[in-house]
């Protein structure tokens, strides 16, 4: 799965962090890694990943790479409006999750797509 980069850096941070703190976890990541804000009960801590976990997609920019949540019906996505894999109960067609397929296509439960 999308495990955070393990090991501990000189600063006592989780492996992929550039800077971190006790309460907030990772604050900045090493180059090209994504920062993901993980909710654990009351806590929300930063972790650094090579690819974002299920239900999130990565956005890159010159100064920071973030994991951002996909749309609610999507398990994995390219961006907020373009899904790669839908949750159970809906079928993927051209980046959209649909409960029923457009004319001329039929739902495939194995592929979770309209085919």
């Amino acid at each position: 799965g999308n495990k955070q980069v393990s090991g501990v850096s000189s600063q006592g941070c989780q492996g992929g962090c550039q800077t971190c703190s006790v309460y907030n976890g990772c604050l900045t990541c090493k180059p090209k890694l994504f920062i993901h804000l993980e909710r654990d009960g009351m806590r929300q801590i930063g972790v650094c990943l090579a690819s974002c976990p299920n239900g999130f997609y990565g956005t890159r920019s010159p100064d920071r790479n973030d994991c951002i949540k996909c749309g609610s019906e999507c398990d994995s996505c390219f961006n907020r409006n373009f899904c790669l894999r839908c949750r159970a109960g809906s079928y993927l067609h051209k980046g959209k999750c649909m409960e029923s397929c457009p004319d001329g296509l039929v739902p495939s439960d194995t592929k979770k797509e309209c085919v």
């Binding site: 309460y23 907030n24 920062i35 804000l37 929300q44 801590i45 930063g46 956005t59 973030d66 951002i68």
Partner: peptide, 11 residues
């Protein structure tokens, strides 16, 4: 808790 980065307008 809210991580400081969770309150950016992009998040």
């Amino acid at each position: 808790q809210s991580h400081p980065l969770s309150l950016c307008n992009t998040s």
